[in-house]
């Protein structure tokens, strides 16, 4: 770098300016939705693309919360997303571990099979899945949602964990074995704790997907509206013939906030986790 300090400061400033401007543009739809959620109905039509309002209507939130029955949906969504995260993380971590660190007959076949599912068309598979869930007597339970949703994230998570585990130093594992640790201890006490960033990454991905899933919760709780999730509940607002726009915005914000919070909490580990997975 042979540029002078002033030029460098100037360039820096320009960079920050560009990042901020881009960021504002990037976040604009969110700002607008948040703004819209605080407007009165008339304001909403009068202000157009301006996200700001002079008279914020905080009551929109309480109204949306109550009318949308968001309290119940919220709990369902937390259980659904939480269950999906636990099941996905455990199953993919275990599978990723044995695929990365152990040798067994059929390993290549398993890899080929799950790799192929990434490319195969999924088409109209809802009826076979529905029949299966029904035969398991899980229809209209949150378990059905968790299992079906988790299954959809299995392959990707397994590949991520596989990539991550294959980069962890073998010395640790071998030292543990010398100390007499068995297969389970090695995995649960050494490998899994070491994979924190990847745990966070897979947890985040599966949480995002479960949180935003619409079709799965709709179909598998069809007779149990009390088990619906936030995304399905949102449709209460998008009712057929009338729509309360400001409440739609408030509902969207309510739906989004928790998942954004989860992301903020996990993002520290997130890039590191991915970096671990792609190292090799």
């Amino acid at each position: 770098m042979r540029t002078g300090p002033i030029a460098r400061t100037g360039r820096r400033g320009l960079l920050y300016l560009a990042l901020t401007a881009g960021g504002l543009l990037w976040l604009y739809p969110f700002l607008w939705a948040v703004g819209g959620s605080l407007k009165s109905d008339d304001d909403f039509f009068a202000t157009g693309l301006d996200p700001f309002t002079t008279h914020p209507q905080w009551s929109n939130y309480s109204q949306a919360w109550e009318e949308g029955d968001f309290g119940r949906y919220f709990l369902n969504t937390v259980l659904f997303a939480g269950g999906t995260v636990v099941l996905t993380v455990l199953a993919t971590a275990m599978a990723g571990y044995v695929l990365a660190r152990t040798e067994f007959p059929g390993r290549k076949a398993v890899l080929a099979l799950i790799g192929a599912t990434l490319f195969l068309p999924h088409g109209y598979t809802i009826i076979p899945v529905f029949d299966l869930i029904q035969r398991l007597h899980l229809l209209n339970t949150l378990w059905a949602l968790i299992i079906v949703q988790s299954a959809s994230g299995m392959v990707f998570g397994t590949f991520l964990f596989m990539g991550y585990f294959s980069t962890i130093d073998r010395g640790l594992e071998e030292a543990a074995r010398v100390d007499g640790a068995d297969f389970h201890q090695v995995f649960w006490r050494i490998m899994l704790p070491l994979s924190g960033p990847m745990l966070a990454t897979v947890a985040l991905f599966s949480c995002i997907n479960a949180w935003n899933s619409f079709f799965v919760p709709l179909v598998f709780t069809l007779s149990r509206p009390d088990l619906h999730t936030l995304t399905v509940g949102m449709f209460t607002f998008l009712g057929e013939n009338s729509t309360a726009w400001t409440l739609v915005c408030a509902g969207s914000v309510i739906t989004l906030l928790p998942i954004v919070a989860v992301f903020l909490g996990l993002q520290r580990y997130f890039v590191n986790g991915l970096a671990g997975a792609v190292k090799e």
Partner: peptide
């Protein structure tokens, strides 16, 4: 044990992804 660890993932994928296709 490798198979046992693989099983949850494999069962879910076979039942809910591969079989329906």
């Amino acid at each position: 044990w490798s198979y046992a660890y693989l099983a949850p993932m494999a069962v879910l994928v076979l039942a809910f992804v591969v079989y329906p296709i």
